[in-house]
Amino acid sequence: MDKLIIAGKSYNSRLLVGTGKYKDFDETRLAVEASGAEIVTVAIRRTNIGQDATQPSLLDALPPSRYTYLPNTAGCYTADDAVRTLRLARELLDGHNLVKLEVLGDPKSLYPNVVETIKAAEILIREDFKVMVYTSDDPIIAKQFEAMGCVAVMPLASLIGSGMGILNPWNLQIIINELQVPVIVDAGVGTASDAAIAMELGCAGVLMNTAIAGAQHPVLMAGAMKKAVQAGREAYLAGRMPKKIYTASPSSPTTGVIGS
């Protein structure tokens, strides 16, 4: 069986999904179920003091017993904030130490600040966190994260929430070829074909949120993404035919054509 293995744990699904931007927890739950994802990202935020404690929470919609939670550091612009956020997340999730590290560099592009990300990763790995790291598609930096001990490297395909798809398949291909740890495309996927292309390149998985939550029909799109990731993975494993530029090759026999 073809499994995704992250930090020694195996998963059947290669699609990881975010839980933000849905209209309510019902839609979140239905979309996550339709996606078949086993790993879901969550954000850590200040509690709303004075809010009714009986209000449903994300943890009710997506029970941590059923899903692997991947707390993120979205919104953090310094290594220090990211580290503090994940220490809180580990306490919140009873010692769960698999985390998604992202340190942003700019609120407009949400492009990662790799210098701060490296600083944060060093501290977190020292403190026994299993770090899945969001980064740019720079192959040298990706290799460095692997050498540091990150359990997965997650380069962007294009900007977070942009839906622009795989803008630099060539860089992604270098990263995939050079790394031993899972390479997971995180950010930029817009529709099913983008996810399939990422998987055909040889990515170990795809992480997305807005591509599903921002679709006209999120639950339907979640199902489409599940199939796209599976189709792309199978195409990768099958090994595509070589491209033959300017050379056609008939699929039917060239002999026995009538009138010849």
């Binding site: 975010g18 839980t19 933000g20 931007k21 849905y22 979140t28 990202t41 969550v42 954000a43 850590i44 935020r45 200040r46 509690t47 003091i49 929470s57 994300l58 943890l59 939670y69 707390p71 993120n72 979205a74 503090r84 956020t85 809180l88 997340a89 919140l92 999730l93 977070i160 929430g161 992480l207 997305m208 949120n209 807005t210």
Partner: peptide, 10 residues
Amino acid sequence: LEIVVAVGGG
């Protein structure tokens, strides 16, 4: 003090 919860996010 910082008091936090898990919320939906990517």
